[in-house]
Amino acid sequence: MNVVLGQVVLSKAGRDAGKIFVVTGLSEGSYVLISDGSTRRLENPKKKKLRHLIATNNVIEAIAQKISSGERCTNAEIRKALVEYNVPVDSKV
């Protein structure tokens, strides 16, 4: 599974199962860094294995551009961008 910065992902394992996140960093191997702006802030992103995520086809371009260019992206921007994706999801994905 290939993911890019700013891509919206759904966690399918762990205590955050069923929550929506955005990819804020790419790590070595099969790991990515994810944030949601509230429980997982940009200052302390979650390092998660790709196999524990479901990638969506949605990429938040504004966040992807800010992160890749080195501009400051805020937690409020991430929360605001994820509002439309936060629909109730069964936690047993």
Rank of each mutant, 00 (worst) to 15 (best):
N2M: 13
N2Q: 14
V3Q: 06
V3D: 03
V4R: 14
L5H: 01
L5D: 00
Q7T: 08
V8S: 04
V9M: 14
S11F: 09
S11C: 15
K12P: 01
K12Q: 11
A13M: 08
R15H: 15
R15V: 15
D16K: 11
D16T: 14
D16E: 13
A17S: 13
A17E: 04
G18P: 07
F21H: 13
F21M: 12
G25I: 08
G29P: 04
G29I: 12
S30K: 13
S30M: 13
V32G: 03
L33H: 03
L33I: 02
S35C: 10
S35G: 05
S35A: 15
S35Q: 05
S35W: 04
D36H: 07
D36P: 05
G37N: 03
S38R: 13
S38H: 11
T39H: 08
R40S: 04
L42E: 01
E43Y: 03
N44K: 14
K46W: 10
K46D: 04
K47M: 10
K49Q: 12
H52E: 07
L53M: 15
T56V: 09
N58T: 06
V59Q: 02
E61P: 01
E61F: 00
E61G: 01
E61I: 11
A62H: 06
I63H: 02
Q65F: 02
K66V: 05
I67T: 00
S68V: 06
S68C: 03
S69W: 00
E71D: 06
E71K: 08
E71I: 03
C73Y: 01
C73K: 02
C73V: 15
N75S: 09
N75C: 09
A76Y: 04
A76T: 07
A76K: 12
A76C: 02
R79M: 15
K80T: 11
K80Q: 10
L82W: 08
V83I: 15
V83W: 13
E84L: 13
N86W: 12
V87S: 08
P88M: 10
V89P: 00
D90H: 15
D90T: 14
S91G: 10
S91Y: 11
K92V: 14
V93R: 12
